[in-house]
């Protein structure tokens, strides 16, 4: 734990942080139905790194992402994207922040069905009324490998292709940070691997910052760092993960909980 906080401090001081939070708490309901989804989390995501978040179902992974991305509000604590504190923003500014600084990849239903793949990719920029950087766009499309499919609508694309379009969209506007919630959850292992390799490459070669929630140790192994969540707290972390080490750690957790 010290390492996480240390890193947070370090990153903050150097300014190389894409997003961070301090004492983040999220409580749902009250009385009988009260659920503490996040319990005083402080974490920072350094720029240019690929972070995976793991943890049992209901541990608060999605909630953490939603609050940090400005899709949901915190009960207490503070969050930042770059140097901007989200907790102080109204809906209009939050919307603009999401549009300009944040990229998303959801587990499913990522694309607008009435738009073609190409139109979906440039959607956030179109909404903002900005011209996409054509050179960059070409590079992204090239990397995703969907050049021939650009004119197709989502219904004419496979699940993996759809997820790759979603990734391309997240990358196209060069956001400060990309949040991906189980982006490969619905894909077979081969297509999943394609998408993960693509995300990894965008971090390595394009300097993108990505935070990804996953249940799959193999998926987590593509990241630079893995955070483990349980009951709304960060309980462990691992640098340069491999699938075997992640699996072993998860098994250890399970034992601990049983015992």
């Amino acid at each position: 734990m010290t390492t996480v906080e240390q890193e947070t401090r370090e990153a903050t001081s150097t300014g190389a942080v894409a997003a961070r939070c301090e004492g983040l708490t999220k409580v749902y309901g009250d009385g009988e139905t009260r659920v503490v989804a996040l319990d005083g989390i402080s974490v920072a995501f350094p720029k240019g790194r690929f972070t995976a978040i793991m943890g049992p179902s209901g541990s608060g992974k999605s909630t953490l992402m939603h609050v940090m991305a400005g899709l949901d509000t915190a009960s207490s604590g503070r969050t930042w994207i770059g140097d901007t504190e989200l907790t102080s923003l109204d809906d209009k500014r939050l919307t603009r922040m999401r549009r300009d600084q944040v990229g998303f990849v959801f587990q499913s239903f990522n694309l607008v069905p009435t738009l073609t793949a190409a139109e979906n990719i440039t959607l956030p920029m179109d909404i903002a009324g900005r011209k996409p950087d054509q050179e960059w766009l070409d590079k992204v499309v090239e990397t995703v490998g969907l050049r021939e499919r650009l004119g197709h609508r989502p219904a004419e694309l496979s699940g993996g292709q759809q997820q790759r379009v979603a990734c391309a969209r997240a990358l196209a506007s060069r956001p400060e940070i990309i949040f991906a919630d189980e982006p490969t959850g619905n894909l077979d292992s081969r297509t999943g691997t394609d998408v993960l390799a693509f995300l990894q490459m965008s971090v390595r070669t394009m300097g993108q910052t990505i935070v990804m929630v996953t249940h799959d140790p193999v998926a987590a192994s593509y990241a630079d760092r893995v955070l483990f969540l349980a009951d709304g707290r960060i309980v462990d972390e691992m640098e340069q993960p491999t699938a075997e080490r992640v699996l072993a750690r998860m098994v250890a957790f399970d034992r601990k909980q049983e015992g």
Binding site: D91, K92, T95, F104, V112, P124
Partner: peptide
């Protein structure tokens, strides 16, 4: 609903 939510998440204003 989902589609509109997606658009909002991607930065479409109210």
């Amino acid at each position: 609903t989902r589609e509109l939510g997606l658009l909002r998440a991607l930065g479409m204003s109210r």
